[in-house]
Structure formats: C-alpha cells, structure tokens
Computed example of a mutant assay.
Amino acid sequence: MKRRTLLKAFGFPALATTGAFGWMTAARSKNRYYQGPVTDHFDGVRFFLADQPQDKGLIELARWQLGGERRAWPESFPSPFRDRPPAEVRDLRTALIGHASFLIQAAGLNILVDPVFSERASPFSFTGPKRVNPPGIAFEDLPPIHAVLITHNHYDHLDLDALGRLWQRHRPRLVAPLGNDAIIRAEHPEIPVETRDWGESVDLGNGITAHFEPAYHWSARGINDRRMALWCAYVLTTPAGVIYHIGDTGFGDGKIFHAVRARYGRPRLVHLPIGAYEPRWFMGPQHMNPEDAVKVLGIVEAEQAFGHHWGTFRLTDEGIDEPPRDLAAALQAAEIPEERFRPLRPGEAWTPSA
C-alpha cells in the first residue's frame, strides 16, 4: 500500500491530497458537525482531552512516512476461525469480526461495535488499507442486531456502507459520540443516530446501559475536520457484568483507566487495542502497544481481556504477527497468565464457560 493511502486511512487526506495548504486551511475551519457550548473538552470548534499531548505536525508526519522502517505484510492472513453466532445469548458472548469490530451478545441483546465489513479502511473503494482476511462473521450470518455503537469516525471504525446495510436489514439503534450523527446522516439521512458526550449514557434495554468514556485519541474524516467529532470508549453495564470496550487509545498518564475502575468496579470483560503502535515516537499518544494494554488490564483488573486492532488492516510499521508476540512478552513480564489476555483472530468467539 502506498504511503498516501495510509495517510487517508488515518485521517490525513489534507496532506495526502492537498499538501500543507490544505492542512493550514483545516486549522482555520469551523465545525461542520457539532454546535454546542464550550466545555472542559470542547473549545467551540474542536474536541480535546486536557492531558493529551499536542497533535503531531507536518514535520513529524513526514519523518514517519519517509522513515522506511515498515515491516512487510502478507497479501493474505486468513483466520482459522469462522463464527456463526446464535440468535440470542442470555448471559454473555463476544466475538471478533475483524480489526476493531465486535459482536457483543448479552442479556438477550445483540450489539455491534464499530462494524466494518468493507474491503478497505479508506474513503475510496480502489485504494487504501485492504483487508488481509475476510470478516470472521459473514454479514449474512449476523443475528438480529439491536444496537450499533460507534467509537469514532476513522475509516477503520466507521464504515458508512456497513451502517446502511445494517439499517436496511436490522433497523438497529445507532449510538455514537457527539458530531458523528452529522457524518452518518450525510450518507444515510434515513438513519436516526443517538449521540452523547463523555460522562453520559444511553439505555439500550434489557438492563444494559452504554456509558461514554474518554479515550486518548482523536478524529478526522476529511480534509478540514480534525477533532470536530467526538471519540469515545464504551462501558456497558449489563446483567452479565461490566464490559469495557476501547476502540483506539494511547495510554497517556493512565488517569482515564483509573477513573473507569473507580466508577464501574472490576469489569468482567475488557476489549483492548494491541495493534497499530509503531513507531512509538509517533503512535504512542494515540495507540497503545501491548505493554501499555497489559498496564490497563492491571489498572482495571478485568477478569478477562481480549486484544484487537491487529492483523486485518495494515496501518502502521509493525509486522502482522508482532502484536501477539509482544503481548505474550508483556504478560510474562507482568506475571499474568496468557489465557487471561488473549489476542483474538477474526471469527474467534468467547463465552464465560469457554
């Protein structure tokens, strides 16, 4: 994959298509997605997290792109798993569709998080990061979907085509952070989207509530919309226990993870990203590496953890099999059994009795 297509997938189309002028234009633009009062994480135009490092600029981005240290990926990396989930689960079941897309089944509800079924994590169908394995759950094999949760608007998490197909087939409730409703409605005006801010929640029914929590990340969908839509992690409080799902985050100072542990108690299950982390000097503020993910597990003390965000779309410099190897080393160093934190492959499913 060419460097320019990688830039587009990560929300840098200004640099990829219009150069520095487009980047400077982005800095002067107004928010097209969300209008609301100034808060401790919204300045009237852009969202931010007070303790998060400043965004990298053109010089740092060029240094990464021209560094030439990317490990090769295979054209195909098929998963040995293929899941055909049941129509209903009374307790708890989670399955990785691929990358950061999950099906969570609990208390009779079927919930998709960041469903991406497209061949490319890109604004274009002909270029950009391409799947090296098919979705671990075929679209046709999905059970009735009751709710879809979106963490943020990057192309490897927000697949507008998939949302349109899901709406036509399942009519689910669609839930997203502030501003993402405008992005979805621009493509699918027929789909109602429920948006919330950090610290707020949505009652999904059957005793399940989705709580919006901060993440050390950012957002961008086009040339001049950086940080104009909010991003989040989700905590699901359910009759089957607490589920903490993080789509993308850096580790930062760790405060947000301590806050989740204090507010919700010990999660039964946590989904932690373990990929897209090299080079660290560039990716550290926005993407955890496996060592960071193990630190988060130690903070929240989840009973079970699963690693995702690796092995499907080539986004950064590490090799395709480095995340699970680095995770195994980090778990060994922390003296945590490997079965407590497993790197999932597409189509791999888990239930508490498995």
Rank of each mutant, 00 (worst) to 15 (best):
Q52C: 02
A215E: 05
K295Y: 00
V89L: 11
K255Q: 11
V294L: 04
L344N: 05
R70S: 08
A16E: 08
R90Y: 00
I243D: 10
E322V: 11
L109E: 09
E194A: 14
E200P: 01
Q168G: 15
N289L: 02
W310E: 05
G57W: 09
A26K: 03
F10E: 08
E194F: 03
P290H: 10
I184P: 09
A87L: 14
I208M: 02
L163S: 07
Y277G: 05
P134L: 06
L103D: 07
G36L: 01
L344G: 03
I97N: 14
G36K: 01
E69M: 13
I137S: 12
R84S: 11
H170W: 12
R120V: 10
A293F: 01
A121I: 03
P78G: 10
E303P: 04
H308Y: 04
P129F: 08
P134F: 00
P324W: 02
E348N: 06
H309M: 11
A233N: 15
T151G: 02
R226V: 13
V235F: 01
E338N: 00
W167K: 10
L15M: 13
D43N: 15
V300M: 04
V193R: 11
I183T: 12
P177Y: 04
P285K: 01
V242F: 02
P53Y: 04
A95F: 00
S219I: 01
A62V: 14
P337M: 07
R131Y: 05
I59Q: 10
G44P: 10
R221T: 03
D317A: 12
E291M: 03
P346W: 08
S118E: 06
E322T: 11
C232T: 15
L142N: 12
V89C: 13
P177G: 08
D51P: 01
P337Q: 07
P192V: 07
V116Q: 09
L272R: 03
R261Y: 01
P135Q: 12
N133D: 12
L7E: 13
P135H: 06
T5M: 06
L58Q: 08
L236N: 11
D292Y: 04
T127F: 03
R84G: 02
E194G: 02
W23A: 13
A107D: 13
D292K: 04
P346N: 09
W23Q: 09
T195D: 07
R266G: 00
P214T: 11
L96P: 06
H99F: 14
A107S: 15
K30I: 05
A210Y: 06
F81I: 04
R185H: 15
V202D: 09
P86V: 09
L160R: 09
I191L: 13
A333D: 06
V175I: 15
V148G: 06
F48W: 05
F139K: 11
A16S: 12
G247E: 02
D40P: 01
H99M: 09
M228K: 12
L230G: 00
T5C: 02
T39E: 08
R4P: 01
V294R: 04
E322C: 02
Q52T: 06
G284F: 00
V294F: 04
D225Q: 06
M228H: 02
Q304S: 08
T94I: 15
I208W: 08
F212C: 12
A210G: 03
L7F: 11
H188Y: 07
I246S: 02
H271P: 00
P192I: 09
E335K: 15
A100F: 01
P13E: 14
